[in-house]
């Protein structure tokens, strides 16, 4: 039935909404929806010709109206699907994560948007615009080294992280090392 494919696509989009990753692009469904829409257009043209001959045919009028609606609905579904995907791609660009498998055009889009972002961010060199959107807490912390982690270079000098030593450091500089279990917050 007309519209079934579009519904399938919307279900897919809905599923994508709650996913961490971007699922594979539904190339085949999209192409079939476009084909269906073109078919609808042909029906439409035919019906319009019929109308010229007999403008009182209620059944034709109704079919004409429904075809119109189906075509528009198909378009809206395609756009809704791709808009959601492009928003996911935007998010990845903000987080500086390269998406894995992409449609060729989507990959172009991702590159373009990443560039747009870099360009915008470069107007604010003094700000870290990609930083956390959670308000900062405890900018500096005391940490104890749990296992040797070598040297780290920070704005506040070089730290030699040998086991059992303690440091007073900027949290942002060591967040990763804490996650990895090298350091412990005291």
């Amino acid at each position: 039935m007309y519209g079934d494919l579009a519904l399938k696509l919307i279900n897919e989009a809905k599923r994508t909404q709650n996913l961490e990753i971007l699922p594979i692009y539904q190339d085949e469904i999209i192409r079939n929806i476009v084909r269906e829409t073109k078919e609808l257009e042909r029906t439409l043209n035919f019906l319009e010709e019929q109308q010229k001959l007999d403008s009182n045919n209620r059944i034709d009028q109704c079919q004409l109206f429904v075809s119109h609606l189906c075509m528009r609905r198909n378009k809206r579904c395609l756009l809704a699907y791709e808009r959601l995907r492009s928003e996911k791609l935007d998010q990845l660009a903000w987080e500086n994560i390269e998406p894995e498998i992409l449609n060729h055009y989507e990959s172009d889009y991702f590159k373009n948007y990443s560039e747009t972002l870099i360009n915008y961010k470069s107007s604010f060199p003094e700000l870290d615009l990609s930083g956390s959107l959670e308000p900062p807490k405890d900018v500096f912390i005391d940490v104890r080294v749990l296992k040797d982690a070598g040297e780290i270079q920070t704005e506040y000098g070089v730290f030699n992280l040998t086991k059992d030593s303690q440091f007073f450091v900027r949290k942002a500089d060591v967040e990763r090392l804490i996650q990895q279990g090298y350091l412990q917050k005291i």
Partner: peptide, 19 residues
Amino acid sequence: MSLPNDLKITLSPQEVEFL
């Protein structure tokens, strides 16, 4: 997306504390 969805509706408790 430049702002997570939950932040589009309201201020988070952390943000209120921040203020």
